[in-house]
């Protein structure tokens, strides 16, 4: 095998390995979803989802994240086609949208804690906070990753290795939006029904 072929094989392996890591992350979230499902009615006399969730707010949050999944797709495509400025703009847009999403989430958490409905209040709230915050933590890691990739795109020569890392970031971000579909559906929509 020539060195070029070998390097190509290495890149393919990294893509597969990262994909498989995402699959293991599915199991992590599955454990938290299973926990939420088991504890969703254990409100210990406190408020339930229907009492707490602001549906409009959550819808906006969801749209923000969904849009960011679109923008990062554009960034990956632009970069792979060699359009550096385009890719940078889409990446920054993704970061802004992701940051807005996270800020909205923190705002929601803060409001709940302030009114006495923090994670200590009941098992339901414990599982709600943990599931949503774990997703938020992943988003935060994604934001950090966007910063690193954006810096490299802007200042250094954007080699095929960086392109590859950007494509993995894209996978990560899309995956997080997919997890959010289920959080939105099960925690907020179903959990928010009276």
């Amino acid at each position: 095998m020539s060195r070029a072929e070998e390097e190509h094989a290495i890149v393919q392996r990294k893509s597969l390995g990262f994909w498989i890591y995402l699959m293991t992350d599915c199991l992590l979230f599955a454990s938290l979803f299973a926990t939420f499902a088991a504890l969703r009615n254990n409100t210990f006399g406190g408020p339930s989802g229907a009492d707490l969730f602001d549906m409009q707010f959550v819808l906006i949050e969801t749209m923000v994240l969904l849009t960011s999944s679109f923008t990062i797709g554009m960034a990956v495509l632009g970069a792979s086609r060699g359009y550096k400025k385009q890719a940078l703009i889409w990446l920054i847009a993704t970061f802004v949208l992701g940051a807005i999403f996270l800020a909205m989430e923190l705002f929601e958490f803060h409001a709940l804690v302030e009114e006495g409905n923090g994670w200590q209040r009941s098992a339901f709230l414990s599982s709600y906070f943990t599931l949503v915050a774990t997703h938020g933590l992943h988003i935060a890691v994604g934001l950090l990753w966007i910063i690193v990739v954006t810096i490299r795109l802007w200042r250094f020569k954007f080699k095929h290795t960086d392109l590859h890392r950007l494509s993995l970031l894209g996978l990560f971000w899309h995956f997080l939006d997919i997890i959010w579909i289920f959080i939105f559906s099960f925690v907020y929509l179903i959990g928010g029904m009276s």
């Binding site: 992590l28 454990s31 938290l32 926990t35 088991a38 504890l39 254990n42 409100t43 210990f44 994670w119 200590q120 209040r121 009941s122 098992a123 339901f124 709230l125 414990s126 599982s127 906070f129 943990t130």
Partner: peptide
């Protein structure tokens, strides 16, 4: 995930596996 939840119970007073608070 399970160890994390147990440690959250121990560190920040969540109620995943407690006998009160709706834990199981």
């Amino acid at each position: 995930a399970t160890l994390a939840m147990l440690s959250l119970d121990r560190l920040i007073d969540t109620n995943f596996f407690t006998t009160g608070g709706g834990g199981n």
